[in-house]
């Protein structure tokens, strides 16, 4: 699906060359830096890639990446399901906005680590606490983005919906949500980037599997090659989600634009 999509969008060859040259330069700098320093502290690219391939072959890396992805998906879904309606409500109602604005500021500024520790203390070292901790970190950002969108909703369309008696459900589905879609996509983008980083911390502190747990383990063994291999694998997966899911969705939703 993703490859077909990439093939459909014609990329000029000069752009491909620039990307390839830039990647090669990065690998070269990495290699030289590794040679100049201690190979145990900064293993060369070749070593890291052989660890990556070995991890994929024996399935261990894939399993941990899969577990982490599942946590990312669960927290992301929870954060969007809670944050989007609250954001829309605060954008539409001035009194709700006034009342909850200070709460929002508070939650926006609580460090992720505090939420995680408190969730584990209050609910125990369980999966639900881990997911909730990540979602709580993300929800305020979703609210802020969606509130901004809901504030600028086109009044003309809302009046049209009211005069023609569309009712709440139809107004939401056909008038409000399509107009807020760019804001939902923006919240998803920044959400994905934030959430996967926090999920690793949650795993490091209170889970016995996932990429974060593994990195903690490698840290204790001073296994930098494995740490880098897991990082590369996960960055690759997240980039794939962006290219194969988010961007095509956005394009489809924008096909009405001239």
């Amino acid at each position: 699906m993703a490859t077909r999509h990439l093939l459909n969008a014609p990329t000029p060859w000069s752009a491909v060359w620039w990307h390839a040259a830039s990647a090669a330069a990065l690998l070269l700098i990495w290699h030289v830096a590794s040679a100049l320093t201690d190979a145990r502290l900064l293993p060369p690219p070749a070593v890291v890639f052989s660890v990556l391939v070995a991890g994929i072959r024996d399935g261990e890396l894939l399993w941990h990446v899969g577990i982490t992805l599942a946590r990312v998906a669960a927290s992301f879904t929870l954060a969007m399901l809670v944050g989007v309606p609250i954001g829309i409500a605060m954008g539409r109602s001035r009194s709700l906005d006034r009342f909850f604005d200070s709460w929002l500021v508070l939650f926006l500024n609580i460090p992720a680590l505090v939420t995680i520790v408190l969730c584990y203390v209050w609910f125990g070292l369980i999966e639900a606490a881990a997911i909730a901790a990540v979602a709580v970190n993300k929800i305020p950002n979703v609210i802020v983005t969606l509130r901004e969108g809901a504030r600028t909703l086109n009044k003309d369309h809302l009046e049209m919906a009211q005069v023609f008696r569309l009712g709440r459900a139809k107004t939401l589905r056909h008038v409000i949500l399509p107009e807020l879609l760019p804001f939902i996509v923006a919240a998803s983008r920044s959400g994905l980037a934030l959430i996967w980083k926090i999920v690793l911390v949650v795993e490091l502190l209170g889970r016995s599997n996932g990429v974060g747990f593994q990195i903690h383990l490698f840290f204790q063994f001073f296994d930098v090659a494995s740490i880098l291999a897991y990082t590369i694998a996960f960055v690759g997966v997240i980039q794939f989600i962006e290219l194969a899911i988010l961007q095509p969705l956005e394009r489809r939703a924008n096909r009405w634009r001239r």
């Binding site: 003309d156 023609f164 399509p178 009405w256």
Partner: peptide
């Protein structure tokens, strides 16, 4: 009563 309203601008939903 059912009201039909033709606004000064057409007010069509651009995504429909």
């Amino acid at each position: 009563p059912v009201i039909g309203y033709v606004f000064q601008n057409p007010r069509l939903l651009p995504w429909r």
